[in-house]
Design a binder for these strands. Sequence first.
RNA 1: CACCCCAUGGAGUAGCGGUUAGCUCACCUCCCUUUCACGGAGGUAGCACGGGUUCGAAUCCCGUUGGGGUGACCA
Length: 449
Amino acid sequence: MESVRVRFAPSPTGMFHIGSARTALFNWLYARHTGGTFILRVEDTDASRNKPEYIEVIFNGLRWLGFHWDEGPQPGGAVRGDRGPYFQSQRGAIYKRYVDQLLSEGKAYESDGAIKFRTPKTPIVVPDLICGDIQFDRTNEPDLVIQRKDGSPVFHLVNVVDDLEMGITHVIRGEDHLSNTHKHLALIEAFGAKPPRYAHIPLILNPNGSKMSKRDVGASIEDYEKEGYLPAAVRNYLCLLGWSPKDNREILPIEDVIALFDLPQVNRANARFDADKLFWINGEYFRAAPIESIEPLALEILRRHGILGEKYDHAYFRAALAIVKEKIKVGRELPDWMGHFFREDFPFDPAAAKKVFTTEGLTNLVKLHERLSQINPKDFNALTLETEFKALAAATGQKLGALIHPTRLAVSGSSVGPSLYHLLEVLGRARVLSRLERAEKEFTASPGT
RNA sequence: CACCCCAUGGAGUAGCGGUUAGCUCACCUCCCUUUCACGGAGGUAGCACGGGUUCGAAUCCCGUUGGGGUGACCA
């Protein structure tokens, strides 16, 4: 039994599209499921559109998503595998050999400086592992240009030649290639070679059903990294677009996907991109993630927003992140939720101030200030604080909320946030007292403004 | 225009001839609760349409409609 060899063959055009990522994912899953080889091949034949630095985008995207490739170019210029070169721009001699073969056998001819392949005009069946057997008529199929006037080979030719040369056993690609596959089969037959198996996966569409292009929101993988999504969450979401574990699970470890994944079970209908669901899945991963695993991501985002500099209180940052991460779903929410931890001049939410910094609210702040200042700094923890709050509420005959809401706003500027007692504990006695004082001063003169 | 693919609530899906059509997101209500989030209990909402086949169809066949793809000296 021959071992599976699959490839991901992107063009370096400047971004890593979510559809490409899903194609890469399914290839990678199939390779891992079968114990086969996952190959990266760079289709950079269109010199006008491809730039060398764009290759880094592909490397980074694959690396971020955790799709390690067994063969192909590596970052830094190294190469793995003995079927290279893996850049089509470096395989000109190989393509020429195949074109010459077709020419010498009369299966191709010159026309206006270009070289055209004589396509068969008889019906053909394209067998597909996902779509089934598909018939194509081909009666009016025009001959196919395989080499341009300038001597460069076109996609259909290089794609087929490389799959043959690299021993690809399964071509797993987007359904947009399904209608072109009969051309590939014709070329392979002309070369007298054995075709790989094909599996065309459904496309990812916009929420409105249109084709997802580069400019559409959510199309770029780099954006997810920037916005603080977790790669495992994005990967998990992508698995669910066109594939299902069939046991009602939504969140599942990639190992389970690898074990369950197979081509015949891939869906045939296009799927629409749903940012809400990705958001939810990310929240599941975010909350379950160990604090250390999201620290770098959080640090990067907070620094990008100018909230943290090179130097910062590591323990304080970590403690703050720990209570915040329970409440949010994606890294991009971090600046809003954590900004106040690192500056004393944070603004107060005006609407919330109007509502809770009333005369009564401010009076409570004063009482609280007095009470909390009695606590020994080393006892300033969530448990003690809860006791104090409850004691004051009981003593003044108020509901706990009457104390909690003004306090939260006073120490964080916001009406939403982590568990208040834990928030106060993380801030520490000194910060809490000074923040209470600041709110008292700023609002006592004109309550509720 | 031609050819190809597809069609379960708003979105992703389970279902593969007999189910009160299941699950997740989103939305709504309630509970929990210091806010938010989580968690819990409910709710709104679906087999595109029309013909067949069959005792019986979301499941099989045909047509229609709708959506997507391909038809490049782009990939």
